[in-house]
């Protein structure tokens, strides 16, 4: 506790850095994965390549990916763009499958009813498919949120500052309070963002609550 009170300012700064690195990839992967997932769910021709491709992407370990991404995209190794790109790729790796499952979970008779009442393709997507895919999509988004927050810390070994810096610093300077603070804060941030996802979903999907109460 003593260490923490003396380093509150640094910890606060690292926490802010951490959020700046974790929130954009979560949002970006959601924005990219929803249309790709819809494509995979609606067309067997796209499904296999999309899901296999993203599945393999997920298999690539994070640290090597943090080194390969700048080489491929031409970023500098320690730039935030490296982290955000790599973590967005990871997020998509999980979310494309999640979104595909989510869109496949929309019942066929509901699609039929929406078409019969004269929804256009676009209207069907926004007003019927996306809301009804919501619950399954949410469960993947929560996984992506939590694992993104955790993965950001790995960037510390290549010198990208985040809560992970508390691990590398603490290890080099032999301060376990630093590392423990880092672990606790990472977990807290992960759960806080996770809770935020759940709250947002509850607000966006009122029928879910009503139905589970019934």
């Amino acid at each position: 506790m003593n260490w923490l009170s003396q380093n509150l300012h640094i910890v606060g700064q690292l926490l802010a850095d951490h959020l700046v690195l974790s929130i954009p990839p979560i949002l970006l992967s959601l924005i990219i994965s929803v249309p790709l997932g819809r494509l995979a769910a609606g067309s067997p021709r796209w499904r296999t390549p999309l899901l296999t491709g993203t599945g393999l992407l997920y298999a690539i370990p994070s640290l090597p990916l943090f080194i390969i991404v700048p080489a491929v995209f031409g970023f500098s190794l320690r730039s935030p763009a490296t982290m955000i790109t790599a973590l967005t790729l990871y997020g998509c790796a999980l979310l494309v499958r999640g979104a595909a499952d989510a869109f496949s979970s929309v019942p066929q008779d509901v699609r039929l009813a929406a078409a019969a009442t004269g929804h256009s393709r676009w209207g069907m997507f926004w007003k019927v498919e996306l809301p009804l895919a919501g619950p399954v999509l949410l469960s993947s988004l929560r996984v992506v949120t939590v694992s993104t927050v955790s993965l950001v810390t790995v960037g510390a070994v290549i010198g990208i500052s985040s809560l992970g810096t508390l691990f590398t610093d603490g290890f080099q300077r032999n301060i376990d309070a630093s590392i423990i603070t880092g672990i606790v804060l990472t977990v807290v941030v992960a759960f806080a963002l996770d809770a935020l996802c759940v709250l947002a979903a509850r607000w966006a999907m009122p029928w879910q609550r009503a139905v589970s109460r019934a």
């Binding site: 955790s150 510390a156 590392i179 672990i183 990472t186």
Partner: peptide, 19 residues
């Protein structure tokens, strides 16, 4: 399993390394 996903690997490695 839910909680484990949030645990940062590097944090575990370094703290066990110190200990």
């Amino acid at each position: 399993t839910g909680g484990a996903r949030a645990l940062p690997t590097l944090g575990l490695l370094t703290i066990f390394g110190l200990w």
